[in-house]
Amino acid sequence: MTQIVTRRELVLAFIIVAMVLLIGVRAPVFLSFDNLRFVVTDTSVLIMMALAQMTVILTRGIDLSVAANLALTGMLVALLSRALPGLPIPVVMLVALLIGAGLGLVNGLLIAGLGIPPIVVTLGTLAIYRGAIFIVAGGAWLTSKDMTEAFLAFPKAEFLGLSSLTWVALVVTIGFYVFMTLTRTGRGLYAVGGNPVAARYCGVSLRLSQVLVYTLAGTISGLAGYLWVARFGIAYADIGIGYELTVIASCVIGGVSIAGGIGSVIGTVLGALFLGVVANALPLINISPFWQMAISGAVILAAVIVNTRSEWKPQKLILHEARRAAAGGQK
């Protein structure tokens, strides 16, 4: 908390910038303002989802159901807006948030209440939510023809030169930053993940934290569900399939420790941006999207190796000279 950005995050930011520039050499169009704006817009949903996932991983958990939640909520609000075309968009978004929160709360209650491991619970709800999409829509696909103009317009709107998606991601990011650094509950998540027994001695409850983070992850997934369906103008049972892995990968690349207790908002945003740049650049420089998986995989491994190295025990300052040198260096 004492440092706003860690060295690790600076390195990651540097790698992203270097990557963008290198790609720009091969394909100058990549560096155009319009394209960069598009890349950020395209990554907005990933950023939001990764931030929510980060809070889950901080508590030593994992939420595999986020993409299924996204798809189910997306389908439900699409159905809703088809049934009630007059519904104002803020209401639609509110409904998406609530449905998502409810689906996330189910995870949280099962994990905190029954003590079932998060990976098992969310693997189960993943399948249930995916199945539910099929059931609520009767197996049908909803396309832009089934959606109202207003429903489709929001993600495409622009304010002050930035897309609404970018704005939403920005607001969510600031919200998470304030939550994680300036609230007791946010700091408590680090305690719960870092040392659950000690957290209990400080009156910070693991169970309450779990209910909170899974609900939060669900809420963000719900919002993302509306944005996704409206942006692409399509809803069906398989949208965003496997997307939870991209979300988790963003966290890992951004320095969130799967063992819990370590992770930052800035790192996670950078992790998502990294994957967003890779996904958007590869087609431009004629690399098959199939390579994309392999590349993200390699990057995740590299990130994990960097993390374990940086988690090495730092040397203590005991020798007189070493202390003097450290004190001098700080001035």
Partner: peptide, 10 residues
């Protein structure tokens, strides 16, 4: 008696 310590925090 048990350490109540959060290594990653200040």
């Amino acid at each position: 008696q048990e350490p109540v310590m959060f290594d990653e925090l200040s």
